[in-house]
Structure formats: structure tokens, C-alpha cells
Design a protein around this nucleic acid. Structure first.
Lengths: 231, 231
DNA sequence: GAAACCAAATCGTCATACTTTTGAGCGTGT
DNA sequence: ACACGCTCAAAAGTATGACGATTTGGTTTC
């Protein structure tokens, strides 16, 4: 998943710094400066910058340098950009944005999944729902999180829509970030758990409307809780 | 918006070819081959490949070459990837995916817009709705399309959610592609026009629920129409 | 037949030189 | 004082040659 090699190292330094605003919008970097700062060659700097340019985080212009672009031009759907923002100082804003996105997408995905999921996927959802129930009772937060991520990713994948499916990792990052954020909450609420079971059952039964409604309750609840935490 | 220079030229050749499947999944390119084929230097090839790698279209490995990745790993939210796919042979699939995405996102964005839009944006929506009505009557398809794009982009922007806002361009591409696709339809249906006005009014009035419902009707209708066209 | 080994292919990195664009300063003329 | 254009230098863009690192696949050896 990660970008490899020395350019990858540069990216891992510059990306988060820009995403967090440490290198502010409008700041100008020169490639020679970067070469020295990281002790790498022109080639490496250029390739790293090219990648950042692809994400629209920076723009490189002759005679002026590499300028950090305003947030509004960033490719906010790029998985790396999302991760960097989640890791840095505007994690709250990023979580809020993603929260709204989930409220929009996941119910629709659940409805589609009810229609298009394979038998394997339906089975997997059922079993994940059971796992969730059990690990919640055991207050095993870590494996609970893992299964929660798998559950939502499976629903998204089962929607048979590539774009929804690709949000699986992102949602995973959100769930992880959220868990870290309110530092291991008071055991997962049984209400949310029941809703997950409901989603699984509705998808198994091919009941799109029910699946959508239950999923909407889940993600809307998560968003509300998030907004309280960040208030 | 475009990527500049010689790497940009390479991208403009390779990207669409890969997106269209002309260079199939698993195909292997060697950088030397690309240098010769395009008459450019290693530097240029490497930078172009790096960008494609950033989009997860290809992966470069030592001793093996540059291999085209399976579709499932592509960054399907990358604006360039979307454009390339829309331009090529899997435009239908891409339009379907984007259609579902619109059904999920735009109603939610309309609801948010009803709450968060600035006065300017509300004014702009009203005036765009009027323009739509008029150009539809005049059967001026080109300016109709332009205003339609502006309308949806404004709603997305007014949602005050960066991720929604960034889908503005994508939705624009969809609308353009759709118009080209069923080659200038029998003048825009007055029903859809009325719904646009309804969305604008609801957002002006701050009626989130109404805005959401009307917008959902619009995009769901568009998706249904699309599925008929592609059936 | 399996394990160790070797060699070729290919990308990865570096150093350097040359080219192209463009911003800024300077000067000239109105 | 202002505008216009000229020149120069700074920075990215491109090209090239050399070397390093790594993976693959075949070959040898036990």
C-alpha cells in the first residue's frame, strides 16, 4: 500500500507536515533545499514532489518553486491525504467530513448490498455480526474494532459498486481513529450492536429498505456522538 | 488542472489506455521501452510512472517491470482516473458507479446546504434555477448543461463539507458525459426542472428535509434513466 | 530431487550538464 | 510619474551516463 523507496520517505515527511498545516498554504519549497534537507538526489526529490503534485497538495512552477496549494484544491479523497489528515492536527475536521460522507454512503451501500451481495458475503456479514455481539460482551475492544471494520467494509464491497467499495479502507481508518480518539469508550453500546445484527439480517433477507434504515441509524448515531465529542 | 510537461504527455497516453483496458491488467511495461516509444528520457518516464503509481494504476518492481494493477486497486476517486474512464470503453460502468454515488451524496449535500449555505449561495441557487427554466424552454442545451453543472456544484459546495464539495467537478463530468451520451435528448423534461426549483427554494428556506427529498428525486430519476439507456 | 548458488535483467539512485521558462529589476521614452 | 519593453538570473525541466540493489530464474552441486 505504501509508496516505496526514498521518495516514499520524503512523502512520509512532507505529506503529513503539509496536511497538518505545519508547512502552511502558500509556503514555497525549493528542490535544492529539499535535496540538502533529506540528503537525497534531485531525482528522488522530483519524484516525491510529482506525487504530491498528483494529490494537488503542491504545485511546482519554474523560477518560483514548489508552492503548497490551498486546502480547497487538495484531493481529499486520496487515501494518503485522508490518513495524513487523520494523523495530524485537523483530525477533528477530517472526522467530521468523513462522518457526513458515511451517513450519505453507507445506508445506500447497505441497500445495494441487500440486492447484490453474494451468498458468501451474506454469510460473512452474519458471522461478523455474531462476532461483534460476542466481543462486545467480552469488552475486547481490539478485536471488536477489527470486526467492526470488517463488517462495514464487507457491506461496502457487497454493494457491487467500486466507488463504495473503495471507501472501505477509509471507513476503517475512521473507526480506528474514532476508537483512539475517545480513548477506549465504556464498552460498545448494545444498541449499536443490535443494529449491526439488524443490518446483517436485512441484507441476508434481501430487504434493502430495512438494511438502509438500520445502517442509517448506525452511522447517524456515530456522527452525532462524534459531534458531541468534538463540541 | 492538467499535469504539465513531458510527463503530462506520457500520462495523457498511458492513463486513458490503461483506464480503457487497452493495456490490460497484468501487462508489463519496461521503462526503456517507454523511453523509446515516446522519445523521452528516463527522468520523464519515471515521473509519469510515479504518478500512475500514486493512482494505483500500476506498480513498479525491480527485475520485473511496471505492471498494470487490477481495477480493484485503482484510486477510483481520483479525478483523472474518473475522466479517463469516462472517456474510454468503460464509460457505462463508470457512469453507473457515479450515478449511485450521486444518489447517495447529493441528497445529503442538499440537506446540509439548507442548513449551512451562505446568503450568496442561496441567491446563486435561485438564479441558477431560473436560468435552468429559461434555457430549457429555449432548448438551449449547451448553456442548460452549463447551468445544470453550476447548480449541482453550488449545492455540493454549500454543504460546507469539503469532501462533498470536491465531487462538484466529478458530477460536472457525469452531466457532460450523460449529455453527450444520449446525444442531446428531447429537451430537458420540465419535471426535473421543477424539482431543481424546488431544491433551490427549500435550501433558501432552510428546509433541509424538503431539499433532500427533492434532490433525491432528481438524482434517482437520473440514475433510472441512465440504467434504461444502458440496458 | 532439493537446496544452494550465480548471473542477468530491471528498476532505483546519484551526479552533472544543458535547456526552458518566467519573474524581477532596470532603463528608456512618453 | 507611469508604462512599456529589455535583459538577466533563478529555478524547475530534461537528458545522459554510471553505478547500486534486488529479484527472478536457471544451473550447478550434493
Amino acid at each position: 500500500m505504501e509508496i516505496q523507496g526514498l521518495p516514499g520517505r520524503l512523502l512520509a515527511e512532507l505529506g503529513p507536515a503539509i496536511a497538518a498545516g505545519e508547512i502552511p498554504e502558500g509556503a514555497v519549497l525549493r528542490s535544492e533545499e529539499l535535496e540538502e534537507r533529506f540528503g537525497v538526489s534531485r531525482t528522488v526529490v522530483r519524484e516525491a514532489v510529482r506525487i504530491l503534485e498528483g494529490m494537488r497538495l503542491v504545485a511546482s512552477r519554474r523560477r518560483v518553486g514548489i508552492t503548497v496549494q490551498p486546502r480547497s484544491t487538495w484531493d481529499v479523497f486520496d487515501p494518503l491525504v485522508i490518513r495524513w489528515r487523520l494523523a495530524g492536527s485537523d483530525r477533528p475536521a477530517q472526522l467530521r467530513s468523513l462522518g457526513s460522507l458515511r451517513v450519505a454512503v453507507e445506508p445506500a451501500a447497505a441497500a445495494l448490498a441487500a440486492r447484490h451481495a453474494t451468498d458468501d458475503e451474506r454469510r460473512e456479514l452474519s458471522s461478523l455480526a455474531v462476532e461483534l455481539t460476542m466481543t462486545a460482551r467480552a469488552a475486547d475492544l481490539e478485536t471488536f474494532l477489527r470486526h467492526d471494520i470488517a463488517f462495514h467494509a464487507t457491506v461496502l464491497r457487497a454493494s457491487r459498486n467500486e466507488m463504495f467499495a473503495h471507501l472501505g479502507d477509509t471507513v476503517g481508518a475512521v473507526l480506528t481513529g474514532r476508537t483512539e480518539y475517545h480513548l477506549m469508550p465504556h464498552q460498545p453500546e448494545s444498541y449499536a450492536i443490535r443494529l449491526h445484527r439488524e443490518v446483517a439480517e436485512a441484507i441476508c433477507a434481501g430487504d434493502a429498505e430495512h438494511a438502509e434504515r438500520a445502517m442509517r441509524t448506525i452511522v447517524a448515531g456515530a456522527l452525532e456522538e462524534l459531534n458531541q465529542q468534538l463540541a
